[in-house]
Computed example of a mutant assay.
Amino acid sequence: MGIGMVLVIEGLVYALAPQLVERLLEALREMSLEQRRLLGGLTLVTGLIVLWLARGGLF
Rank of each mutant, 00 (worst) to 15 (best):
E10M: 15
A27F: 12
T46F: 10
L20S: 09
A15S: 04
L39C: 00
L53F: 11
I3P: 00
L44N: 04
E26S: 12
W52Y: 13
L16F: 15
G40V: 01
L39D: 02
V13W: 08
I49F: 11
I49H: 01
L16M: 11
G57S: 05
E30L: 15
L38H: 06
W52S: 01
R29P: 02
G40S: 15
L7P: 00
T46I: 05
G56I: 10
L25C: 08
L58N: 05
V13R: 12
P18W: 03
E26H: 13
A27R: 15
V45F: 05
M1V: 09
E30K: 13
W52T: 00
R36G: 02
E30P: 08
M5A: 13
M1A: 14
L53C: 04
L16V: 13
V45K: 00
V6H: 07
Q19S: 13
V45G: 00
E22S: 14
L44A: 05
S32K: 03
L7V: 06
L53K: 01
L42K: 03
T43H: 00
S32Q: 06
P18K: 00
L44E: 08
L28G: 03
W52F: 14
G11L: 09
L53M: 11
S32D: 14
L25G: 00
Q19P: 01
G11I: 07
G41R: 05
Y14D: 03
Y14W: 10
G56Q: 08
G4L: 12
L24G: 02
G2V: 03
L39K: 03
A15E: 01
M31Y: 08
M31Q: 15
G47D: 01
Y14Q: 13
R55P: 00
A17I: 03
I9H: 11
R36L: 14
E30C: 05
R23Q: 08
A54I: 06
W52P: 01
Q35L: 05
L38Y: 07
R23Y: 07
L33P: 03
R29M: 06
V21P: 00
F59R: 15
G41S: 13
L16K: 08
I9N: 06
G4N: 06
G2W: 10
E22V: 09
R37A: 04
L44W: 06
G47K: 03
R37G: 01
L58S: 07
E22W: 05
L20N: 08
A27P: 02
L44C: 07
R29S: 14
R37Y: 11
V6S: 08
F59M: 10
E26F: 09
F59K: 14
R37C: 02
Q19E: 15
R37N: 08
I9F: 13
F59E: 15
R23S: 02
